[in-house]
């Protein structure tokens, strides 16, 4: 008889039956470990949450200041019913963690979302040896290969400076949580006045209050139209094609995402510039990460699951795709908080 798996894929989460604990559940459960604070992984309504301490400010902001939340440092562990849990850096956004689960010498790692490139804001990914690795595959096609971060940062700086010289404002768009702090951290010192969309301002201030080293970026709403001259404005993708942008005319729009690697994807968005900057692993990083874990079995939770799983199987790594709710509505869910 086949014994219970250490982790199983249920209709509401990645679940550990021995410890009765859920990882990134998309339905309310009693006890949840949260890999990171993006809305497709951190859902509202659980009775108890556990996450890395750097996730706390945002989890409390988004899920409620009164949630029951226990935090851990990276590498710190705890045991429930003979199952040992610990968190390890995933390099995706601030606080993002891989969850290492061990029982009687068998090790599983649920990685949530991750990237290998060091973004110089959140602690970089650490490969954890395991028997079974649970991976994303958001960019699991060989067409996705990221350039070094500094090259993209330079592209953005040149773009923003050119706009300034032409008397235009630069609207730089991306996810409010993660991408924006990465950009702000790496773009400074700034060559022009900077402002932030309210949703980004809120996240920034939450993190600054918690002691993270980020510069103060004033919110757009406190400024007047005359302040926006050759300025750089950090905004969320939700502002595209909305009247919110009107006050910045004339302006040029730039969008930061891994999807910008494909011309068609960029052109569909009707933006002026696409910057290929992602907080997910590219093709080579996915393969490198999986090799580094030494895992015999790999589950693929979201992204190009069928393609990537087939690729792994053909390379001799046993793999299967599993259905989860990750990778959806991240943008829509996190970025509608401000007018």
């Amino acid at each position: 008889m086949k014994r219970n798996e250490l982790l199983s894929f249920t209709a509401s989460s990645i679940y550990c039956p021995s410890a009765d604990i859920h990882i990134d559940p998309w339905k309310p459960v009693e006890r949840a470990i949260i890999t990171h604070a993006h809305s497709d992984h951190a859902k509202w309504g659980c009775q108890h949450y556990l996450a890395h301490k750097d996730s706390e400010p945002i989890l409390r902001m988004r899920l409620g200041s009164d949630i029951s939340l226990q935090t851990l440092e990276y590498g710190e562990s705890f045991t429930i019913n003979g199952v040992n849990f610990s968190l390890h850096p995933a390099g995706h956004i601030i606080g993002s963690s891989q969850v290492r689960v061990e029982q009687q010498g068998e090790i599983w790692v649920a990685s949530g979302d991750y990237k290998l490139q060091d973004d110089l804001f959140c602690p970089p990914f650490e490969a954890i040896k395991c028997h079974t690795f649970i991976t994303e595959s958001t960019f699991g096609l060989p067409i996705y290969k990221w350039k070094p971060q500094q090259e993209i940062i330079d592209e953005i700086k040149v773009w923003a400076l050119q706009n300034k010289l032409q008397g235009k404002n630069s609207i730089l768009m991306g996810y409010a949580l993660g991408k924006m702090q990465r950009l702000i951290k790496n773009l400074q010192p700034f060559d022009q006045p900077v402002f932030a969309h309210g949703a980004i301002y809120n996240v920034n201030e939450q993190l600054r209050t918690a002691g993270f080293d980020l510069p103060y970026i004033p919110p757009v709403n406190n400024a007047s139209k005359s302040d926006f001259q050759g300025a750089l404005i950090f905004a969320t993708g939700s502002v595209l094609n909305t009247p919110w942008l009107k006050r910045f005319e004339p302006y040029s729009t730039g969008y930061c995402s891994g999807w910008m690697a494909i011309r068609g994807a960029k052109n569909r968005k009707s933006i002026d510039r696409g910057f290929v900057l992602s907080d997910h692993a590219d093709w080579d990083e996915l393969n490198t990460a999986i090799d580094a874990t030494g895992a015999e079995k790999v589950y693929v939770t979201h992204g190009y699951t069928d393609t990537f799983s087939r690729w792994l199987n053909e390379r001799g790594v046993e793999s299967a795709e599993v259905k989860t709710m990750y990778g959806e509505e991240e943008e829509a869910a996190t970025e509608t908080t401000e007018s």
Binding site: L141, P142, I143, R263, T307, E314
Partner: peptide
Amino acid sequence: ANIPMWLFRESYGSVGDLAETISLILPV
């Protein structure tokens, strides 16, 4: 690129342009 044909086809399907797909899969 050292990838199987089916994976090239999947890639091409996502990019939609042959010249572009080739440019993306080639080693940097």
